[in-house]
Design a protein around this nucleic acid. Structure first.
Length: 334
DNA sequence: TCTGGGGTCCTCTTTCTC
DNA sequence: TCTGGAGAAAGAGGACCC
């Protein structure tokens, strides 16, 4: 979906149309938080996802800043996914605003399916999206990003050299800032340059598993199937304090609060956990975790809170705390 | 004055058990 | 009784994605 959160807000507040809109955090750009979504008008000012709200405010003080309303976006997301499922039952969810569809069983031209899908979403929901069609997920994802917004791009096996190899390595799924810098250090900027590196060298530089992934990805090779059903592996809640704190009462109260939420979440989704992890980020942004694995599965707030405080006790709280979080994992279905 | 929150997966190290 | 090794489980950190 194109600038999904901003598009949903524009739908219910038509006066936002054509204006720079920034969605993130509490909606107050003077508070701590980052940009979740910026409308295309806001992007003209250089505002991007994951940017601190304060920075966004400096770039464009006239922008309209809104808080994130996950409930509403999830509801609209459900409507979008229902439409997608009419095109193919084989669908993989990728977060709130993306999905893969396997249309290999459909007789129609894939380009026609892509165009029809966009039309239906536009007509029924008044939202635009960008569609990529390709022989696998890796290339479909790249294709979908090539002509945003409101794009429709098709990549076939024969297009690798012409369309994909000139692209920057960051366009490959799984290549983030660290790998980008590492590759830059050995003189590699584009996917084509990456494809020219022997597999042995990639394995030397990045380890067996990831080296092999880069080798295949740069050639457009991806055999991974669509995941149509998956079970959660962990569940967590965390919060960044508006001001860094070393006040034990505040830290303890917040952790108790987070463990309660995590336990409530788990009971609602019908799982039991065995491992409880506490995460602390200090004022200098260093981040640590301490975990406690219990002898029995539980969804009790009491038990989880006790385990969390045991883990908290193993931290040296010498510096001010910026963020605290609680996570449960090691799940079993109730 | 920076740098959210919710996840997954991978790797390395430590700890436990046999 | 002491020591060592193998393998699993747990713990911690890091990279990445939306």
């Amino acid at each position: 979906m194109d600038a999904f959160f901003a598009a949903v807000e524009r739908k219910r507040h038509p006066e936002l149309a054509g204006k720079p809109v920034v969605i993130g955090g509490s909606g107050d750009p003077r508070e701590r938080g980052v940009v979740s979504t910026a409308s295309y008008e806001a992007r003209k000012f250089g505002i991007r996802s994951a940017m601190p709200l304060r920075t966004a405010y400096k770039l464009c003080p006239e922008a309209i800043f809104l808080s994130v309303d996950y409930e509403e976006y999830s509801r609209v997301s459900g409507e979008v996914k229902n439409i997608l499922r009419e095109f193919s039952p084989v669908m993989e969810d990728v977060g709130i605003d993306e999905a893969f569809l396997d249309i290999s069983e459909r007789p129609e031209l894939s380009e026609d399916i892509g165009r029809k899908l966009k039309d239906v979403i536009k007509n029924k929901l008044d939202l635009t999206c960008s569609v990529g069609v390709a022989p696998n997920k890796l290339l479909a994802k790249i294709a979908s990003e090539m002509q945003k917004p409101d794009g429709l791009t098709i990549i076939t096996e024969g297009d690798m050299e012409k369309l994909v190899w000139p692209l920057h390595v960051r366009k490959l799924w799984g290549v983030g800032p660290k790998t980008e810098m590492h590759l830059k250090g050995i003189g590699i900027k584009t996917i084509g340059e990456l494809a020219a590196v022997p597999i042995e060298r990639l394995k030397e530089q990045f380890g067996n598993s990831y080296g092999n992934y880069l080798y295949e990805a740069s050639r457009g090779i991806d055999e991974t199937p669509l995941i149509t059903h998956w079970e959660p592996k962990s569940s967590s809640r965390e919060i960044t304090f508006q001001r860094d704190t070393n006040d034990w009462q505040t830290i303890a109260r917040t952790l108790a609060d987070l463990t309660k939420k995590v336990a409530d979440d788990m009971r609602h989704s019908g799982y039991l956990c065995r491992t409880v992890t506490v995460k602390i980020r200090f004022e200098d942004f260093t981040t640590y975790t301490r975990a406690k694995t219990l002898s029995e599965f539980t969804d009790s707030t009491e038990v989880i809170r006790k385990a969390a405080f045991e883990a908290l006790g193993r931290f040296e709280l010498k510096n001010k705390v910026r963020l605290i979080g609680a996570r449960v994992s090691n799940f079993k279905k109730v």
